[in-house]
Protein backbone atom coordinates (compact mmCIF):
# COMPACT_ATOMS: atom_id res chain seq x y z
CA UNK A 1 0.00 0.00 0.00
CA UNK A 2 1.35 3.42 -0.77
CA UNK A 3 1.54 6.27 1.68
CA UNK A 4 -1.23 8.13 -0.09
CA UNK A 5 -3.57 5.15 0.21
CA UNK A 6 -2.98 4.94 3.97
CA UNK A 7 -3.40 8.64 4.67
CA UNK A 8 -7.18 8.78 4.59
CA UNK A 9 -9.68 10.01 7.13
CA UNK A 10 -11.05 6.51 7.85
CA UNK A 11 -7.56 5.22 8.78
CA UNK A 12 -6.85 7.98 11.28
CA UNK A 13 -5.68 6.63 14.64
CA UNK A 14 -4.12 9.63 16.35
CA UNK A 15 -4.46 13.33 15.88
CA UNK A 16 -3.80 16.36 18.06
CA UNK A 17 -6.97 17.10 19.98
CA UNK A 18 -9.22 19.85 18.66
CA UNK A 19 -9.33 21.39 22.15
CA UNK A 20 -5.99 23.06 21.47
CA UNK A 21 -6.24 26.55 20.07
CA UNK A 22 -4.38 27.36 16.85
CA UNK A 23 -1.58 29.12 18.72
CA UNK A 24 1.85 27.46 18.64
CA UNK A 25 2.94 26.36 22.13
CA UNK A 26 5.43 28.80 23.64
CA UNK A 27 7.47 26.09 25.36
CA UNK A 28 11.05 25.12 24.52
CA UNK A 29 11.57 22.15 22.19
CA UNK A 30 11.07 18.87 24.04
CA UNK A 31 9.45 20.40 27.14
CA UNK A 32 7.02 18.14 28.97
CA UNK A 33 4.53 20.98 29.43
CA UNK A 34 3.19 20.54 25.91
CA UNK A 35 2.62 16.83 26.45
CA UNK A 36 0.81 17.36 29.75
CA UNK A 37 -1.37 20.09 28.18
CA UNK A 38 -2.34 17.59 25.51
CA UNK A 39 -3.11 14.84 28.03
CA UNK A 40 -5.37 17.16 30.00
CA UNK A 41 -7.20 18.28 26.87
CA UNK A 42 -7.54 14.71 25.60
CA UNK A 43 -9.02 13.70 28.95
CA UNK A 44 -11.48 16.59 28.81
CA UNK A 45 -12.41 15.70 25.24
CA UNK A 46 -12.92 12.03 26.05
CA UNK A 47 -15.05 12.83 29.08
CA UNK A 48 -17.03 15.37 27.03
CA UNK A 49 -16.64 18.09 29.64
CA UNK A 50 -15.24 20.93 27.56
CA UNK A 51 -18.10 23.22 28.50
CA UNK A 52 -18.01 22.33 32.19
CA UNK A 53 -14.31 22.53 32.99
CA UNK A 54 -12.53 25.48 34.55
CA UNK A 55 -8.76 25.47 34.65
CA UNK A 56 -6.54 27.67 36.76
CA UNK A 57 -3.26 28.72 35.15
CA UNK A 58 -0.22 29.37 37.33
CA UNK A 59 2.67 31.78 37.14
CA UNK A 60 5.68 30.21 35.48
CA UNK A 61 6.31 28.76 32.06
CA UNK A 62 2.68 27.64 31.88
CA UNK A 63 1.38 31.14 32.62
CA UNK A 64 -0.03 31.29 29.10
CA UNK A 65 -1.81 27.93 29.36
CA UNK A 66 -5.14 29.70 28.77
CA UNK A 67 -3.87 30.80 25.36
CA UNK A 68 -3.47 27.18 24.26
CA UNK A 69 -6.40 25.42 25.93
CA UNK A 70 -9.80 26.02 24.41
CA UNK A 71 -11.62 25.78 27.73
CA UNK A 72 -12.60 28.24 30.44
CA UNK A 73 -9.54 29.29 32.38
CA UNK A 74 -8.51 31.71 35.07
CA UNK A 75 -5.13 33.11 35.93
CA UNK A 76 -4.07 33.05 39.57
CA UNK A 77 -1.45 35.14 41.33
CA UNK A 78 1.85 33.36 41.89
CA UNK A 79 1.25 30.23 43.94
CA UNK A 80 -2.40 31.05 44.66
CA UNK A 81 -3.95 28.67 42.15
CA UNK A 82 -5.29 26.25 44.81
CA UNK A 83 -6.90 29.17 46.68
CA UNK A 84 -8.55 30.42 43.49
CA UNK A 85 -9.58 26.90 42.53
CA UNK A 86 -11.16 26.49 45.96
CA UNK A 87 -13.36 29.50 45.30
CA UNK A 88 -14.18 28.39 41.76
CA UNK A 89 -15.13 24.90 42.88
CA UNK A 90 -17.17 26.04 45.88
CA UNK A 91 -19.13 28.47 43.73
CA UNK A 92 -19.52 26.00 40.85
CA UNK A 93 -19.69 22.57 42.48
CA UNK A 94 -20.96 20.96 39.27
CA UNK A 95 -17.95 22.09 37.23
CA UNK A 96 -14.69 20.20 36.85
CA UNK A 97 -11.88 22.35 38.23
CA UNK A 98 -8.16 21.80 37.92
CA UNK A 99 -5.01 23.76 38.64
CA UNK A 100 -1.89 23.44 36.56
CA UNK A 101 1.24 24.42 38.47
CA UNK A 102 4.98 24.16 38.29
CA UNK A 103 7.34 23.49 41.16
CA UNK A 104 8.27 27.13 41.72
CA UNK A 105 4.58 27.98 41.93
CA UNK A 106 3.22 25.03 43.91
CA UNK A 107 6.19 24.05 46.08
CA UNK A 108 7.76 27.44 46.81
CA UNK A 109 5.56 30.51 46.93
CA UNK A 110 2.35 28.49 46.99
CA UNK A 111 3.26 25.96 49.69
CA UNK A 112 0.73 27.35 52.17
CA UNK A 113 -2.13 27.46 49.66
CA UNK A 114 -1.33 23.97 48.41
CA UNK A 115 -1.07 22.36 51.82
CA UNK A 116 -4.18 24.02 53.17
CA UNK A 117 -6.26 23.27 50.09
CA UNK A 118 -5.14 19.63 50.33
CA UNK A 119 -5.77 19.57 54.06
CA UNK A 120 -9.27 21.01 53.68
CA UNK A 121 -10.01 18.30 51.15
CA UNK A 122 -11.22 20.60 48.41
CA UNK A 123 -12.71 18.68 45.55
CA UNK A 124 -10.50 19.58 42.58
CA UNK A 125 -7.52 18.26 40.67
CA UNK A 126 -3.99 19.58 40.98
CA UNK A 127 -1.56 18.89 38.15
CA UNK A 128 1.95 19.57 39.43
CA UNK A 129 4.84 19.75 36.95
CA UNK A 130 8.12 19.11 38.74
CA UNK A 131 11.28 19.84 36.78
CA UNK A 132 13.50 20.78 39.72
CA UNK A 133 14.21 24.30 38.55
CA UNK A 134 12.64 27.70 37.90
CA UNK A 135 12.37 27.43 34.14
CA UNK A 136 10.82 30.70 33.05
CA UNK A 137 12.96 33.08 35.08
CA UNK A 138 16.27 31.58 33.96
CA UNK A 139 17.02 28.30 35.71
CA UNK A 140 17.30 29.35 39.36
CA UNK A 141 17.31 26.83 42.19
CA UNK A 142 13.85 25.65 43.20
CA UNK A 143 12.76 23.84 46.38
CA UNK A 144 12.73 20.66 44.31
CA UNK A 145 16.28 21.05 42.91
CA UNK A 146 18.23 17.86 43.59
CA UNK A 147 21.32 17.76 45.87
CA UNK A 148 24.43 18.74 43.86
CA UNK A 149 22.30 19.72 40.87
CA UNK A 150 23.54 22.89 39.21
CA UNK A 151 21.29 25.88 38.72
CA UNK A 152 22.01 29.50 37.96
CA UNK A 153 21.77 30.48 41.65
CA UNK A 154 23.80 27.45 42.81
CA UNK A 155 26.43 27.13 40.06
CA UNK A 156 28.49 24.64 42.08
CA UNK A 157 25.48 22.42 42.73
CA UNK A 158 22.91 22.49 45.52
CA UNK A 159 24.75 22.25 48.82
CA UNK A 160 22.26 20.61 51.17
CA UNK A 161 24.18 21.76 54.25
CA UNK A 162 23.49 25.37 53.33
CA UNK A 163 20.41 25.23 51.10
CA UNK A 164 18.46 22.39 52.62
CA UNK A 165 17.08 19.29 51.03
CA UNK A 166 14.71 18.98 48.07
CA UNK A 167 11.06 19.13 49.02
CA UNK A 168 9.04 16.04 48.20
CA UNK A 169 5.75 17.85 47.90
CA UNK A 170 3.79 14.86 46.68
CA UNK A 171 4.77 12.64 49.60
CA UNK A 172 3.98 15.57 51.89
CA UNK A 173 0.42 16.09 50.67
CA UNK A 174 -0.19 12.33 50.64
CA UNK A 175 0.02 12.46 54.46
CA UNK A 176 -2.93 14.83 54.65
CA UNK A 177 -6.42 13.42 55.18
CA UNK A 178 -7.90 15.76 52.55
CA UNK A 179 -6.15 14.15 49.59
CA UNK A 180 -7.98 11.30 47.87
CA UNK A 181 -5.64 10.26 45.08
CA UNK A 182 -1.93 11.16 44.94
CA UNK A 183 0.34 9.91 42.20
CA UNK A 184 3.63 10.70 40.48
CA UNK A 185 4.03 10.22 36.74
CA UNK A 186 6.30 11.31 33.92
CA UNK A 187 5.93 11.98 30.20
CA UNK A 188 9.34 11.15 28.71
CA UNK A 189 8.45 7.89 26.93
CA UNK A 190 5.36 6.64 25.14
CA UNK A 191 4.56 4.18 27.95
CA UNK A 192 4.94 6.85 30.61
CA UNK A 193 2.68 9.21 28.68
CA UNK A 194 -0.06 6.57 28.44
CA UNK A 195 0.20 5.86 32.18
CA UNK A 196 0.14 9.55 32.96
CA UNK A 197 -3.00 9.97 30.90
CA UNK A 198 -4.74 7.25 32.88
CA UNK A 199 -3.74 9.00 36.10
CA UNK A 200 -5.05 12.35 34.86
CA UNK A 201 -8.29 10.72 33.76
CA UNK A 202 -8.70 9.14 37.19
CA UNK A 203 -7.93 12.46 38.86
CA UNK A 204 -10.67 14.16 36.87
CA UNK A 205 -13.19 11.37 37.43
CA UNK A 206 -12.58 11.52 41.18
CA UNK A 207 -14.22 14.95 41.19
CA UNK A 208 -17.58 13.23 40.69
CA UNK A 209 -17.11 11.47 44.03
CA UNK A 210 -16.50 14.61 46.10
CA UNK A 211 -13.85 12.96 48.26
CA UNK A 212 -10.99 15.45 48.18
CA UNK A 213 -8.02 16.61 46.22
CA UNK A 214 -6.62 14.47 43.41
CA UNK A 215 -2.96 15.34 43.05
CA UNK A 216 -0.93 14.32 39.99
CA UNK A 217 2.75 15.17 39.98
CA UNK A 218 4.47 14.91 36.61
CA UNK A 219 8.26 14.72 36.80
CA UNK A 220 9.33 16.62 33.73
CA UNK A 221 12.44 17.92 32.07
CA UNK A 222 13.68 21.47 31.64
CA UNK A 223 16.28 21.13 28.94
CA UNK A 224 16.91 24.88 28.73
CA UNK A 225 17.36 25.24 32.47
CA UNK A 226 19.41 22.07 32.76
CA UNK A 227 21.51 23.12 29.71
CA UNK A 228 21.01 19.86 27.82
CA UNK A 229 19.36 18.67 24.64
CA UNK A 230 15.82 17.32 25.09
CA UNK A 231 16.97 13.72 24.62
CA UNK A 232 19.88 14.14 27.05
CA UNK A 233 17.62 15.80 29.58
CA UNK A 234 15.16 12.89 29.45
CA UNK A 235 18.03 10.50 30.08
CA UNK A 236 19.38 12.68 32.89
CA UNK A 237 15.90 12.77 34.40
CA UNK A 238 15.69 8.97 34.37
CA UNK A 239 19.10 8.63 36.01
CA UNK A 240 18.88 11.41 38.58
CA UNK A 241 15.31 12.58 39.15
CA UNK A 242 13.57 9.20 39.35
CA UNK A 243 15.72 7.79 42.19
CA UNK A 244 14.74 10.81 44.29
CA UNK A 245 11.21 11.19 42.93
CA UNK A 246 10.12 7.58 42.27
CA UNK A 247 7.19 7.17 39.89
CA UNK A 248 3.97 5.49 40.86
CA UNK A 249 0.84 5.89 42.94
CA UNK A 250 1.50 7.21 46.43
CA UNK A 251 -2.03 7.27 47.76
CA UNK A 252 -4.82 5.38 46.09
CA UNK A 253 -8.45 5.41 47.19
CA UNK A 254 -9.40 2.56 49.50
CA UNK A 255 -12.31 0.72 47.96
Amino acid sequence: MTREEIIKEENLVYKKTALFTDKALSYCPGCGHGTVHRLILETIEEMGIQASTIGVAPVGCAVLAYEFMDIDMMQAAHGRAPALATAVKRLNPDQYVFTYQGDGDLAAIGTAETIHACNRGENFTIIFINNGIYGMTGGQMAPTTLPNMKASTCPYGRDTAMMGNPLKMTELVAQLPGTYYVTRQSVHTAGAVRKCKKAIRKAFENQKLDKGVSFVEVVSNCNSGWKMTPVQSNKWMEENMFPYYPLGDIKVPQV
Partner: peptide
Protein backbone atom coordinates in the same frame (compact mmCIF):
# COMPACT_ATOMS: atom_id res chain seq x y z
CA UNK B 1 1.86 2.39 16.85
CA UNK B 2 1.37 6.11 17.73
CA UNK B 3 4.43 6.18 20.04
CA UNK B 4 5.86 9.21 18.25
CA UNK B 5 2.58 11.06 18.36
CA UNK B 6 1.95 10.52 22.08
CA UNK B 7 5.38 11.75 23.15
CA UNK B 8 5.48 14.74 20.81
CA UNK B 9 5.27 17.77 23.13
CA UNK B 10 3.81 19.92 20.38
CA UNK B 11 1.39 17.32 19.01
CA UNK B 12 2.56 17.78 15.43
CA UNK B 13 2.27 14.13 14.40
CA UNK B 14 -0.89 12.60 12.96
CA UNK B 15 -0.95 8.82 12.61
CA UNK B 16 -2.88 6.65 10.15
CA UNK B 17 -3.07 2.85 10.19
CA UNK B 18 -4.60 0.13 8.01
Amino acid sequence: CTNCAVVCPDGVITVYRV
